[in-house]
Simulated assay, not measured.
Amino acid sequence: MQLGDIAHLRTGDKGDISQVSVIAYDPADYALLLREVTVDRVLTHLATLTVRRATRYELPGLGALNFVLEGALNGGVTRSLALDAHGKSLGAQLLDLPLRGTIGDPS
Rank of each mutant, 00 (worst) to 15 (best):
E36N: 07
A72V: 07
M1W: 06
H8F: 15
A92T: 11
R41I: 08
V42D: 02
I17L: 15
L83W: 06
D26I: 05
P60V: 05
G4C: 05
G76F: 07
G91T: 14
A72T: 09
K14A: 13
L73N: 08
V42Y: 03
R41F: 06
L46V: 06
R56D: 01
V42A: 04
G71M: 09
A64V: 03
G63W: 03
T44Y: 06
R53T: 12
S80P: 10
V77M: 08
L46H: 02
G91Y: 14
Y57I: 11
Q19N: 15
H86I: 11
V42Q: 01
D29I: 01
L59H: 04
L43W: 00
I17W: 11
L59V: 11
L46P: 02
G91R: 12
T11S: 14
G75T: 07
G76P: 12
Y25A: 09
D13K: 12
L34H: 02
I17Y: 07
L94V: 09
L32A: 05
S89W: 07
L9M: 05
D84H: 03
A85L: 13
F67H: 03
L69A: 06
L81Y: 13
K14S: 15
V37T: 01
L3K: 00
S21N: 13
T38V: 07
Y30F: 15
G12C: 12
G75M: 09
L3N: 00
S89A: 14
V20W: 00
L69C: 07
D40F: 08
A92I: 09
L59M: 10
L32F: 10
Q2T: 11
L32Q: 09
T11D: 12
L81V: 13
L81G: 14
R79K: 15
L32V: 13
R52S: 14
G63R: 04
D96F: 15
A54M: 07
R41N: 11
S89K: 08
A47W: 11
G63C: 08
R79Q: 14
S18E: 03
L81F: 14
T78G: 12
S18N: 13
V39A: 03
L49K: 00
A24W: 01
V22S: 01
F67E: 02
Q93Y: 14
D5N: 10
A64K: 01
G71N: 00
G91H: 14
A54C: 10
A54H: 04
A24L: 07
G61A: 10
Y30T: 07
A24F: 03
T55D: 04
I23P: 04
T44V: 10
L83K: 10
